[in-house]
Simulated assay, not measured.
Amino acid sequence: MKIGYLGPKNSFTYQATNAGFPNLIQLAFQTIPKCLEAISDQRIDMAVIPIENSLEGSVHASMDYLFHSKDLTVKQEMILPIRQQLMMVDPNKKPEVIMSHPQALAQSQAYLNEHYPTTPIVQTPSTTYAAEYASAHPDEAVAAIASKQAADAFSLRIIGHDIQDNDQNETRFWVITKRCTQDSRQQNVTKGKLSFFLTLPSNQPGVLHKMLAAFAWRGIDLAKIESRPLKTSLGQYYFIIDLTVDENEPLIQYAFEEIALLGAEIRVLGPYEIRMISASGEQ
């Protein structure tokens, strides 16, 4: 089997993929849409994409693509602690520029403000790109923010360990597969989560409350709710909602039926199990 991931190699998405599926053929893709398109085109069987970071929030490119793709669903969720390292070729030099992906820079802002307040910052397409550039240009005194695995891969020395602003920094990754012809809610998952997209029938006072009440009075735990623009006109949104699955799938199904009778549109992702991965890549 083949599994795709948002590359390049040694990125955090690669770490999650390698920890969860070390024996599958792994293919890197430059963007989330290209990665997910490869599933629809049957070039790969599964894909791993980032869905949410605990500090920076949801990955909108992932959410929006999945909302508009009717043939994809979630097979599994993996949670990876994110540990950012500052690295250089020569640890005795003072960095003249610091490079990394915008999210890694944002996650390390307090450290950078304290230790390198005047050092120029350059955004790169990925943390791996920054590490590779620093390795290939030792005379430029470039420092990169990336993972320990990237430091090892490009023979860089870590000059700042675990520089992320919050030790609870984690990223959720979804393992995406093509939707089966059978109802995906029939998967044998008794403890985990289920996500679904909700589109309201109209923008009327109290309509969202009516939808959510279908879960509240049944005692179904909503783990997350977030809105995203439909990109049709101002004030038009869809919602992504996560539910906790705990042998309560019949109640969830009844709630879906009630919401459908109220005129809303629902598309289910999952249910899926949750796997925790350590910062070293071990499960």
Rank of each mutant, 00 (worst) to 15 (best):
A213V: 06
Y133P: 02
K231S: 06
I252R: 04
A143E: 07
Y111D: 00
G20W: 05
I158A: 06
L6H: 05
T118N: 15
S227L: 08
V89Q: 14
P117D: 10
N23D: 10
I225C: 13
E258S: 15
H115N: 14
A146G: 13
T13P: 07
L230I: 02
P229Q: 11
S155L: 08
V175E: 03
F29R: 08
V207Q: 14
D165Y: 09
R275V: 14
E77F: 01
T232I: 14
Q236H: 10
T232N: 03
N166H: 08
Q123S: 13
L86G: 09
E273T: 15
R228L: 12
E226K: 13
A110K: 12
N92F: 05
L200G: 06
K75T: 09
Q164G: 13
P201K: 06
H101C: 10
M63I: 15
K9A: 11
A136N: 13
T128P: 02
I241N: 04
I121G: 04
A136P: 05
L198H: 08
N10Y: 15
F67K: 08
D71W: 01
I39W: 03
W174Y: 14
Q283F: 13
A216N: 15
A255K: 08
D221W: 09
R267K: 12
L36R: 11
Q15G: 13
F239I: 05
M276C: 10
N18I: 09
R172T: 09
P22D: 01
K148N: 15
D165C: 07
D165N: 15
Q204Y: 11
A61H: 02
R185E: 11
Q107C: 12
M78K: 03
Q107F: 08
I49N: 12
S100R: 03
L200S: 09
D162K: 14
P138I: 05
V207L: 06
T244D: 12
I79L: 13
I266M: 07
A110C: 08
I159E: 08
Q236P: 07
W174I: 09
R179M: 14
Q76G: 01
E249I: 14
L86N: 00
Q84M: 10
G235V: 02
S108Q: 02
L72C: 08
H115P: 02
N53G: 12
P120M: 02
A144E: 03
Y133M: 15
D242S: 12
F215T: 02
V268C: 04
L262A: 06
D246S: 12
L261Q: 12
L262S: 06
R172M: 12
F215A: 03
G263C: 06
R218D: 00
E226F: 04
L269F: 05
T13D: 03
P8R: 11
M88V: 08
L208G: 07
N188T: 10
N169F: 09
S202L: 03
E52L: 08
A61K: 02
V245D: 01
M211T: 05
L105D: 03
I82S: 00
P229W: 03
H115T: 05
R157L: 13
E249C: 12
F196Q: 02
F256C: 13
M46R: 15
T127A: 15
